[in-house]
Write a protein that binds this DNA or RNA. Structure first.
Lengths: 119, 119
DNA sequence: TCCATACCTGCGCAGATGTGCAGCTATGCA
DNA sequence: TGCATAGCTGCACATCTGCGCAGGTATGGA
């Protein structure tokens, strides 16, 4: 298997066959970047707190999220905008209240790891 | 249950009872921060590629990781230093070669989500 | 009509972070 | 002893990102 791209084929390797295994394990670069972006969304304590609250409590209004997390309204709004743009959460308008919920199954799976570790 | 801290108790809420549920779901602030830091380590495409390679291929030398990921040696070394400081990977010296492997079970669990999604 | 509330946006700043380059140390082999 | 290789480190740079403040829009009630 010649999995090593041409631009790196000339380099020395220690365990040549393992390099091919590693390249196969890494997979498509776009796939890696997509997951890195996903992790990046969870890498902020504020956003992570918001998502943990939404994951276990269900649809929540922006003001309530602000009180629950101790953040101020603009910070929550900003965080939710990012998450909404990434397709992680979705907001439903009900009068002048907007309630958010998580719509991304993969993110929900990751949040499960945190919650399970809480004990 | 009066789970709302005193400094936020005066704020208006939309669904008061849900705020308490949310606070309970979020849990300890240190716990949230710890997980955010963990996610932060996986939020870089370079580090994520390294970890995916190590997770499925086993102990790998720095040079081989550099070839497999397309990064240059200092970048790989820097990334591994971060991961080692966080207790995620561990390096074993064998002659002048250092082979790294993953030693953090929680990170390994998260990597499983990426790998499972690869198909 | 007027006002309070719920949410959103833009701007500016401080802090953190990834990157490339040059150079250093240590190991193994001839 | 001399040299090439494996790996590590320090510095300087550009970039990004979260945060707070001020202000804007829209909904609902008096």
């Amino acid at each position: 298997m010649h999995l090593v791209p041409a631009d790196r084929a000339g380099r020395r390797t220690i365990d040549g066959h393992r390099v091919c295994d590693a390249i196969e394990a890494i997979g498509d670069a776009g796939h890696v970047r997509a997951w890195a972006d996903r992790f990046s969304l969870l890498a902020d304590p504020g956003r992570l707190a918001l998502l943990l609250a939404l994951d276990r409590t269900g649809p929540l209004a922006v003001s309530d999220l602000a009180v629950a997390t101790g953040m101020n309204d603009p910070a929550v709004s900003q965080a939710l905008r990012l998450l909404r743009a990434a397709g992680v959460v979705e907001g439903r308008k009900d009068g002048r209240v907007v309630r958010y919920r998580i719509v991304d199954a993969r993110v929900r799976g990751l949040l499960g790891h945190c919650a399970a570790d809480a004990g």
